[in-house]
Design a protein around this nucleic acid. Structure first.
Lengths: 105, 105
DNA sequence: CAGAATCCGTTATGATACTG
DNA sequence: CAGTATCATAACGGATTCTG
């Protein structure tokens, strides 16, 4: 498990995933434009890592100029519910009264 | 959202959380023994961060020798479903056939 | 277009020794 | 017991330049 969570580490991976959820397939340059803050190096690095981890699928069209698209694997898509759960956890922050109890025996 | 996810960053945070789920309350030394690979510095650092983020609750018993316990806040407990979803995602890895399609136009 | 290669500063993590 | 302080290193992220 701890090992699986490492697959999601990296500042940009979740951001990339959000763009790819729902079966979206995007070109490298589209992702660059969609995530302006990421550098080329980081974008390709995290895409490649997720590719070799079986989360992202790389689709090469042999033509010139080059065209490479990225999408999610089935397993990658399966991450969606988990991320949704995290989102609703994030949302719950508002509802909860601040809990900072110290018994201080 | 991205901001909320940062609260969970850190090599040991989720590992700590797993030990605290279900309402478990553990002493500092118990956590050290439960997670042998973590250094004292990292353990206290990540506990303190999660404490100030409202995920972990620090319970000080004023006695000698010192006794300090750690548990989850309500909001921290609320993370459980999300972590469960991640666990089942991790589990799904087995079931899924490796998807490495390349159209290769 | 879609990268690869290189240099470099920042952050995260660790080992070790000390303390109320 | 439950930390703190210090030093060292490794991992991460970014800017820039070059290429098939």
């Amino acid at each position: 498990m701890e090992n699986v969570l490492k697959l999601l580490e990296g500042r940009w991976k979740l951001i990339i995933l959000f763009h790819l959820f729902g079966g979206n397939v995007m070109r490298f340059s589209e992702l660059e434009r969609a995530i302006p803050a990421v550098s080329q190096k980081m974008l390709i690095q995290q895409l490649r890592q997720m590719e070799s981890d079986g989360i992202v699928r790389r689709i090469v069209h042999h033509q010139v100029p080059p065209k490479v698209e990225y999408g999610l694997t089935d397993w990658g898509q399966a991450l969606c519910p988990a991320l949704d759960a995290l989102l609703s956890w994030a949302a719950r922050r508002e509802e909860m009264a601040p809990t900072t109890s110290l018994p201080d025996t």
